[in-house]
Design a protein around this nucleic acid. Sequence first.
DNA 1: CGCCTTTTTCAAAGCGCTTTGATGGTCTGC
DNA 2: GCAGACCATCAAAGCGCTTTGAAAAAGGCG
Lengths: 342, 342
Amino acid sequence: MNLKQLAEHLGLSQTTVSRALNGYPEVREATRLRVQEAARLHNYTPNARAKGLATGRAMSIGHVIPVSKKHEMVNPVFADFITGSSEVYTRAGYDLVISLVEDGAQEQRYRDLRAKGNVDGLIVHGPQRVDSRIDFLADLGIPFVVHGRASDMTADYSWIDMNNRRAFRRATQFLIDLGHRRIALINGIEAMDFAYRRREGYRAALENAGLTPDPALLFSGEMTEELGYNAMRQMLAAPAPPTAVVTSSIVTAIGVRHALDEAGLVMGRDVSLVSHDDDLSYLRNRAAVPVFTATRSPVRSHGALAAEMLLELIADPGSGPRHRMLEAELIIGRSTGPAPQS
Amino acid sequence: MNLKQLAEHLGLSQTTVSRALNGYPEVREATRLRVQEAARLHNYTPNARAKGLATGRAMSIGHVIPVSKKHEMVNPVFADFITGSSEVYTRAGYDLVISLVEDGAQEQRYRDLRAKGNVDGLIVHGPQRVDSRIDFLADLGIPFVVHGRASDMTADYSWIDMNNRRAFRRATQFLIDLGHRRIALINGIEAMDFAYRRREGYRAALENAGLTPDPALLFSGEMTEELGYNAMRQMLAAPAPPTAVVTSSIVTAIGVRHALDEAGLVMGRDVSLVSHDDDLSYLRNRAAVPVFTATRSPVRSHGALAAEMLLELIADPGSGPRHRMLEAELIIGRSTGPAPQS
DNA sequence: CGCCTTTTTCAAAGCGCTTTGATGGTCTGC
DNA sequence: GCAGACCATCAAAGCGCTTTGAAAAAGGCG
């Protein structure tokens, strides 16, 4: 059933029916009710494409997720992030379009997205320290919100980000306060902005305490379980293993824990561990006393906040770039304890 | 730049330009080249909504993902599955729309999706043993492919599924062959079809060997690390612990491994473990000799296959329901060994 | 009761594209 | 040199909706 049919059926013009359904005031209340009733009865839903054509708004939001052929991994936080966004979109009547775009074809894909006109705005994931996408999108003139930031860019743009630097500084400081001096960092890929900031926070805490970072205790890579396991094993086999470790993800932390288990060491006694915790749904660290001491920042709520910010930006494009900084919470779990006396 | 402008610019009619770009034969080759060149130069991309309106095809595919308020978890396989699908869509010029839909509003959401007309077909995730969505979608008359099956339904519909029953039968048989007699199963939620089939496979192998399943060795729940850990701990504390475990996911397997580590037991010697392995990108189990013995079935390729099937179905709706059964591969890793002599 | 204002409804244009049916132009072949 | 067959191109209708500008109906007031 389309508008025309519904209008004929009611003996009204399309105009009136359209207005009745879209809440315009120039239609009598009795008529509106009659129209709404009929619409419900016939399961009438306006065709989104026609509506979009007429209004110029697509009523949908794109999430662009970079995938590199090199390490062809989908960052597991996307799923939770998107879950958070999705609720906001649904409530506002927007659809969610996912674009996995490969390193190469970036610009063309964005241009197409824009020209094809099937999104009103974009959420950009996984920014690097220098990320050409940002300037490019700004030029295109499509509203967008970056999840994260690109440190080495000067342009102003809308973003929502966790305070990675502060979180990792705090985590490292916490370990220093416990008496640890040899503290390792197992980080994400440091071309990614978030990972870079985390290392900066880690370094700041060490330097603040008069400690020099030991390159032998620095690891970075895709945040897999394997990375944590291999890094920890390697460090345990070396002459001067760390007494504490900071990791960028619970998955990696699990790898570290396993290496410790295998070596007969007790996490929280022999080696302390603080992880970052995105609060992913299948890796909960939420026991009464959590397994891992962690800097927690639920990525799902980031998704919701980013979505809200983007919708506001679309509603009022002049309202300029918006920013939202989120602080992680330090959760004390069972994976940390005072530095062992040596 | 839109068609009209481009046509004016070229001194041609919209018809000719449209045909030139869409590869119709009734346009001279020289003209076609000239048009294509101009289109590229001006970054012309046809407006998808207008095109959709005119052709009646949305050129996009919806993935509907159920989220239950109760256990509000996004199954981590979705991310990888969608990555696989996405490549296929992109190549074919389709967009990917994600709909997270809550338990309650299912039918209305599907009806809307269809009436709004912004998807040409659907992929349905996470079917239960009885799943009303299937009959409903069939009634709606929109092409769809189910990832998985609904065992207790008689209707015929298109699906792609892993042979869960056979995989778990095989895994269990493998343990039996190694001399294990007390074999636990840590499964997903058994209202989900895949989990139900896995238990059936497990049971079939046991019964075939003249063993009776022990309810104390059966667990089921959201496939988290915690589930594996708690289940294994509980079994180790009980009078007659199992000598082998089958798990439904690597995440769960990791929990089991940790419980073993903690108890000072060696996986593969004291307790054997076979896991199902969806080959998720951040939980690779792909070392030369994998950590876990596993029934492997890469969910990413399922995503690609499902997408292909759906596109075929859209291209030729008459081609009737299609089915595709995939077999998991048994990968021998370091987590299994002969049953300990007791 | 008639004039003016307000309310309610409508016809038609337009969003950007595809596609049908028509129209000149250019070749063939006799 | 001309009918018939193609070729290349075009004008216009239509996809389903919103929205403008106009008209009809209803209400208010002296």
